[in-house]
Structures are given as C-alpha cells and as structure tokens.
Design a protein around this nucleic acid. Structure first.
Lengths: 218, 218
DNA sequence: ATAACATTCAATTGATTAATAGAATGATTG
DNA sequence: CAATCATTCTATTAATCAATTGAATGTTAT
C-alpha cells in the first residue's frame, strides 16, 4: 500500500539534494554549461572524489544526468525548472531569513554606495544592442563563455581585466554581465572599469536567465 | 568577507528544511490552516516533542512562524510561495524520478480504471456553482474545513461518509474536493459514493490552490 | 499558590551524511 | 597490451540529524 508519506519521503530526496551549499554551487555551475567532473571540482573547490559523490547525490534526486564522452563524464541539468526552483528558494529565503538579507546586502554593498551600479534592464540592453549604442562585456571564465553567451558579447574573464581592458571602447557605454543576478563578477568588473574611466553599467541578469527567456544565444 | 558560498550555505538551510518527508507533511498541513503543535503532531503521526523539533527546524529556515495563543503555540506558513516551491519540486520530481511517477500512479490507480474519476476543472466548478447545477463536498477533517473552505461546500469528513451520505443530493451532480491535487481523500470519496449510486466527480485541486488563486473562501 | 496543560529543552541513542584517501574501473593513447 | 587519464567505489572518520525520554518552562484554571 502506498501512503501519502512514501510520496513525501521520495519528494524529500529533492529537498535533501538542495540542502547543501556545495551541491547548490554545482547546480549553478551547470546552469552555465554542461561540464566534466574535473571542471566542476575546480570551480567548486572540492576534490574530484568528493565532487563525484555530490554529483551522484544530485543524480539520485533526478536533478542532473551524466553521459560519457571519451574518458570524461559530462554532467548536465536534467530539468531547466531546477533553476527556477533555486531562484524561488532564494526569494523565499531573502524575504524570510534576516541572515540571507544581510549576506546579499554585504556581497553587493557597492550597489548602495554613492556611485550606484545602476543596472540595465533586459529591454534597455536589447535596445542598446540593436542601435549599437552599447558594448556588451561577458566577464565569466572563457570556458563558460564558449559554451554559450549573449550575442555580440566580448569575453574578458574578470581575472584578465587588468591586461585586456584596452579591448573595450571608451566612446560607448559598456554593459557587463556574468552568471546571474547573484553573481558578483559583473559588480567587480564595473567597479574596476569605472576606476579606469570607462562608462560601465551592469546587466542585472546573467546568461542562464537570458537563455531561459528564449532570447538568442551564441 | 562574504563569499558566494556563504550565501549558498544559508540558502541550503531552506533545502535542508525541505529535505525530510515529515517536515513536508507539516508544511502541507499548515497550508490547510494554522495549527497548534499538538494538532500537527496528530496529523503527522509524530510525538509532540518530535513535532516541536521539526517545527523549530522549519522556523530556523524561515518557512514557518509561531505565535503564542494562551498555552498553545500556533504555527503558520511564513510565505505562501513555499507551497509553490513544494509544487515545483513535485513537478520536477515527477518528471525526473521514475520512483515518484510510480508512487503517484499507484496512489491514484483508480484514475486509470474503467470508470475514470473524470476530474472537474476550476472553470467548470465555478460555472456549476453559479448555476446551482453542482453540489460541492469537502471531505477534509472538520477542523480544516472550519479554518477555511470553498463557498457553499458541505463538509463530510471522509471517515464519516458512511453515516452522513444521506445529506447529499441524488438529483444533482456532486463535486468532491480535499487538500490538493495529491490528496487521496476526494478520490476515496468519489469511489465510495459512486458505489452508493451518487453522481460524483472530483475537483482536481484543493483548498490551498483555490485560496492562492484569489478565489472567494469562507 | 497549586495543579494542569501545551510546548520546549537537554541528554542520549542510532542513523545518515560529508569529507578524505587509496584502490578499482573504464576508456583512450602510445 | 601497457600506461595514462578521468571517474567511481570502498572504507574510515568526524559531524550532523532524527527520534526518544524525562525534565523544565510558561500559561491558564482552580
């Protein structure tokens, strides 16, 4: 006999999978692009064996799928709705957990400073790209950029910004984006480029949101 | 220094809270109505002390709030979006976990039987209530009914159906509803009432969904 | 005040989980 | 087919979690 509780226990597998910071980080990384275990271990700062274990956990919960490609196992998100799920968790946590609000506020402290980062909306960005009045800068690591990015974006990973900022135009406004609304990379880029005299603003979303909205990607 | 990982660790608190079948059951019970610890312990089949512990856990994650009323502590959902969150988890689990699909299929095996339960949509129900062509039956326990129910519904808790079915009309079609789309009570009611010769169908949603849609409640 | 009641706390036990290290597996390369 | 590489498995340890019990707290009724 199947009880309601069996069902909730199975559902709890999904909750358990989401109940660990490292696994959430892995899911967010996978939102950027499919990736092999070693890559995921690198970006999450875990050992390969440990990363593999966490991925098994996510796989048992049905959130990721793995396929072999040569000697690598390529992991991908099974369901795009998983990102919506995490975003909803974030919103709920933000409204109801003081700690969460504090952390987000601290991470994005610059937004409240005198020189606000003044984010660009999706519509403004689309308009600016059409008229050519904006230059678009992707500050994510090269591999994530290559796996998919916004049309006409230039890729300068944040850790190469100092060497490569001369690739950017001084005559047009620049819009920087990264992994998503809670990714700090574009904040950092705006701050640093402004110090060098560029006109820069931040796009408040990231590549996964753009793609999920059905907008063209390259 | 705040890192992205601190944020994800805090977010994982919410995931952890959702990572236990009993806690999910508590949240679903709270979707029906605010309730005291003893009531929650009763419906979840846990001891009072254990229920209290789980509620503390949910409280730390910001998902429930408690206020004292006399000697009782009344717990309530902090955020209506939590139900959306659980529903989304359910959908993702259903599509990606074979085990989940199997359990749901088993629980609602009757839906696939010869005499399908033929669920009524929200629009059909609204229409039928307006014209008076439908009688509405709420088969949840009396306390949940009293805390809030659909307009014009008659309450006959499922365990009193045998004694009280004569309250129901034979000349009109009856629509039974309960806690939500995954609650088995209305399925059971339809099955039993059909055996007694009533014309009954099931409303595929429940009280929380009706209320969340902004429809009138009593 | 005292008793009764609802809930929480504290301590304990067993179960589950996370991380580590090293061995084992599967696939490719020379 | 031996060597290499990427990943997974196994065993171990420490940490966290779930459930139980009995005591402690706060509130109401006598």
């Amino acid at each position: 006999m199947t009880s309601q509780q069996d069902l909730l226990d199975t559902l709890a597998l999904v909750g358990k999978a989401l109940g660990n910071g490292h696994r959430l980080a892995l899911l967010e990384r996978l939102a950027q692009s499919d990736a092999a275990v070693e890559v995921l271990a690198d970006t999450s700062g875990l050992t390969v064996a440990n990363t593999s274990q966490h991925l098994q956990h996510l796989r048992r919960a049905g959130l990721v799928t793995a396929t072999r490609s040569g000697k690598q196992m390529i992991y991908r998100l099974t369901d795009a709705r998983t990102l919506t799920l995490i975003e909803l968790m974030r919103q709920i946590a933000y409204t109801n957990l003081a700690e969460m609000e504090r952390l987000v506020g601290q991470l994005f402290a610059d937004d409240n400073a005198d020189e606000a980062l003044d984010p660009v909306s999706r519509d403004m960005l689309l308009q600016g790209l059409k008229t050519g009045s904006l230059a678009l800068l992707d500050v994510r690591p090269a591999d994530e950029f290559q796996a998919g990015h916004l049309p006409d974006a230039i890729n300068i990973p944040i850790d190469q910004l100092e060497q490569m900022f001369n690739l950017l135009p001084k005559d047009r406004e620049i819009v920087a984006y990264c992994r998503g609304p809670y990714c700090a990379l574009s904040h950092e880029a705006v701050k640093r480029l402004r110090e060098k005299g560029f006109r820069v603003r931040r796009f408040a979303e990231g590549y996964p949101e753009w793609k999920a909205a059905g907008l063209p990607v390259m």
